[in-house]
Design a protein around this nucleic acid. Structure first.
Lengths: 140, 140
DNA sequence: CTGAATCCTTAGGGATACTG
DNA sequence: CAGTATCCCTAAGGATTCAG
């Protein structure tokens, strides 16, 4: 996900950029994991449940490019690469945590609101499903 | 956009939900606009530059479903519909603004970081473009 | 004015296999 | 271990048209 911008309007552009940055479903999880401290690739992959290595690589590259994450390659064999937040990255982590906390706290409230909404609206008679998407996601 | 979750891991699920919520490129802009006060559909559409009617409708539905936005339909002709943040929505708006401010303030820093990164890496020799996407976005 | 319905393109991202 | 390279598929979301 790198629309990265779009001519939203000059005022909104950078905002949209950052938002789409954290919106790519994984970066925020990555960053919040990295707050704890530097981490190696596979360690990070294990901590961010469900992410594929392809996407993890891509996300880290993006974060590195934007100056939020620093990549340190140790010339050992087998390779060892460490990722750490830059100072800039830690600045971003702050507001991100704020949001993360909000989510953690209000998760069920959202669930409830949805349930209520779905009920009040065209809830297909039970037994007449197809309901909402089965969605085919899987864990690692 | 309703991936809305995915079995990220039980701890991260609500977080991912909220993040994907704001990640859909428009919702955060919508919410921050609605902080100013209730707004009608087309007024909102004008304020959120570049959004299509379809997407605005969909985003508002999603926000309504999640309990962040309230929809009030005035039975006039022609129709007049007002959207306003719920108290819950205003709670979400807080941390969203934090992020929004970060973006506004650090926009150029990101630009700079990217420029630096792109330069230090495989910058294709000038004249040999195709460089980065032309990307075909347009304003309203 | 508010929105629903359609069509269509793009890219995010999952799965899998291969490499230094 | 830390990636790169492919294939492929779904969904986000533009553009356009129709309707109450």
């Amino acid at each position: 996900m790198k629309p990265r911008h779009g001519h939203i309007s000059d005022g909104c552009r950078p905002i949209s950029e950052v938002l789409s940055l954290i919106g790519n479903k994984w970066t925020s999880l990555i960053i919040t994991r990295l707050i704890e401290g530097p981490m190696r690739f596979n360690e990070l992959k294990r901590q961010v449940h469900g992410i594929s290595q392809k996407v993890l690589t891509a996300s880290l590259r993006a974060l590195e490019r934007d100056g939020f994450v620093e990549r340190t390659e140790h010339p050992t064999v087998p390779p060892s690469v460490e990722y750490r937040l830059t100072p800039f990255g830690r600045e971003l982590a702050e507001p991100l945590l704020t949001l993360t906390r909000f989510a953690a706290i209000n998760g069920e409230r959202m669930e409830a609101a949805r349930a209520a909404y779905d009920e009040g609206h065209d809830t297909p008679p039970p037994g007449t499903e197809p309901r909402r998407k089965p969605l085919g996601l899987r864990l690692n």
